[in-house]
Design a binder for these strands. Structure first.
Lengths: 353, 353
DNA sequence: CTTGACATCCAAAACGTTTTGGGTAATAAT
DNA sequence: ATTATTACCCAAAACGTTTTGGATGTCAAG
């Protein structure tokens, strides 16, 4: 691999000039710049990232840090995000490092080493928990980061974040169901050790309260982790007396909704919006949702907007820009705090409800 | 951030000793090693990755390089791989960089810069095409890499690769269908500009030939890219006379199978293995496959084994180990060439066929 | 008392950039 | 003819490690 000395020698100039020519400084003549560029091209010269980083303190790399095994249900959305993030990183000339681990312990060590050794300029945290050690850790270290999701103390303990308004999403869908004359609406939630499950759940309860419907504990099934738990949850709903049994089931994500539809069909219950059918809704709008039978009514997370906003925010933090102006970058972007943004999800009505 | 000088000063030794103590050399006494380790721990010292890399020529980073937009259908499996790879990387103390782009042009430049600037020690290529420029490029540059998939010239132009035997998978499923008395078996394939589509397709044709069934062009629908193409493909099948119409549809991946099931149900055709129902099969065994209605009969790609083998192979290439012994690391691992391995997929029979 | 052998330690070089703080020559202004 | 300005270039330092090739002191053997 050629280095800057090789280029300098071949061009008959100093390495300073090579560096400044290639980095577009104005104190090198157009003719020598052209000559140097041509030689660099010819020799396939690319400046060593390590040397550059060592000298300049910039890695042009960010990390995407979800939990990798902890939250089965959330993994589906993080998987969708990676590709979109990778593509968007190109615009900022950033490389994307994907990191993560199984255990809390490992994640902590991983993160410390990653930033301690100066491997990244900033990070995107995903799968935020209500109490998330990672936020405090990164805040303490003082490295730029953006969280996708809100911890329970995000208002007092301020840090940059982007989130999708899960409560609003569920509210929209429960209101939709209410308008379709549904009065007994069950709710199935994923594990409560992840923030967005809580927000979505609160959206459900708020809406019931808003309509003056009382909460029925037997219709609220939370903390679903394993697939077979969905089956038993559905079974339990059908043990209820006809008059108490729900006419609609709201699942807190598409993965659960998929399993709900499956469990219902297995029992011979039709899913749909016809009279006598069970309405089912999801959240996320994963690729398969539109092709279920029936197609799933769900809430679409604006994944492109989420990733774009996360990156724009992180990039501006890294550059230490002050007047960050994201307000009208995305439609439906709500400002929660100085560097905290909420994106509005969108209801997608299909045949399942 | 503390550096090695801070540690050395505080411990009253030279930086050489700090370095050698922390890297486990034997020429430093146990007492000073302990003292140094304690100080490093206390000050939260992590050696600078850049400096280390600059001096030692090791980045401890690998790149995962799929195509990001080009092949819609293949993206689903690459998304599953990222998480598994990231987790497995921990065992090798490697960081995972995810890269890729839309266009062939961009991908090329990306790759050149990535390895030219010495950002990675090696790479994993995914979504291999029959003619894949990336393989030649990396081979020419001379950096360790492993391909997930085979180019058309993999036997002559040898390079390290791991693949799942797609032909065998489809063979297994067509044989299964044949044993279920199916004689008119349609085949729907994704785009042919990706290698595995071709292998899977050839598996279909081989099996037909093996049973002495003649190929019917009207039952073989290839190069499906957009979702609505599936609908028209199915429509075309149903324009056929009763006696020519297929009794089973083999899709080349789960994403297509999902859409096939959807299109069939939309026309009121029941999917399943009962008499009079249409049998449908997929390939991949994505998470949703088990929860479709009916649950999808498919071929499971051994994703854990794939990722483990890719990493083991790449790690050994990076370390320049010679006697690589993967043969009995994974059950069902077939050796194609010196560093070329094929993994056997597994048929998963569910209710859809 | 000398000589090896061994256990510890260290100074200096090297890795490949960018940045700093100039220098030189030609041209323009006085 | 001198001075200021401009255009172009460069030497050296700095970034934080690891590695190389000793140096020093201690202890046992001869």
């Amino acid at each position: 691999m050629p280095n800057i000395f090789d280029i300098a020698k071949k061009a008959g100039v100093s390495i300073t000039t090579v560096s400044r020519a290639l980095n577009g400084y104005s104190d090198v003549s157009e003719t020598t710049r052209k000559r140097i560029a041509a030689i660099a091209e010819e020799l396939n010269y690319y400046p060593s990232a390590a040397a550059r980083n060592l000298q300049g303190k910039k890695t042009n790399t960010i990390a995407f840090a979800p939990w990798l095994r902890d939250h089965i249900e959330s993994r589906s959305f993080f998987k969708e995000m990676v590709g979109v993030l990778a593509l968007n990183c190109l615009k900022y000339d950033l490389s994307l490092l994907v990191t993560g681990a199984d255990s809390s312990q490992e994640v902590h060590e991983n993160l410390r080493e990653l930033v301690g050794s100066g491997r990244v300029d900033g990070l995107i945290l995903a799968d935020i928990k209500p109490q998330d050690e990672r936020v405090a850790l990164l805040q303490e270290i003082g490295i730029p980061f953006v969280a996708f999701g809100r911890t329970s103390d995000y208002q007092s303990f301020t840090y940059p974040l982007v989130d999708v308004d899960g409560a609003a999403g569920i509210r929209a869908i429960v209101e939709y169901l209410y308008r379709q004359e549904h009065r007994r609406i069950a709710y199935l939630s994923g594990p409560f050790n992840t923030s967005f499950s809580l927000y979505r759940y609160s959206g459900y309860r708020e809406t019931l309260a808003g309509y003056g419907l009382e909460e029925n504990q037997r219709l609220m099934i939370a903390d679903l982790q394993e697939p077979n738990q969905v089956q038993t949850a559905i079974a339990r709903l059908f043990e209820l007396a006809e008059a108490e049994r729900p006419t609609a089931i709201v699942a807190s994500n598409d993965g659960l909704a998929l399993q709900v539809v499956y469990a219902l069909e297995e029992r011979g219950i039709k899913v749909g919006r016809q009279a006598g059918q069970m309405a089912v809704t999801g959240f996320d709008d994963l690729p398969f949702a539109a092709f279920l039978n029936p197609p799933l009514t769900t809430i679409r997370q604006p994944i492109e907007a989420v990733c774009a906003t996360l990156l724009a925010l992180l990039a501006s933090l890294i550059k230490q820009e002050e007047g960050l102006n994201l307000e009208n970058a995305q439609p439906g972007l709500v400002k929660l705090g100085a560097k905290q943004f909420l994106l509005e999800p969108e209801i997608v009505v299909r045949a399942s409800a």
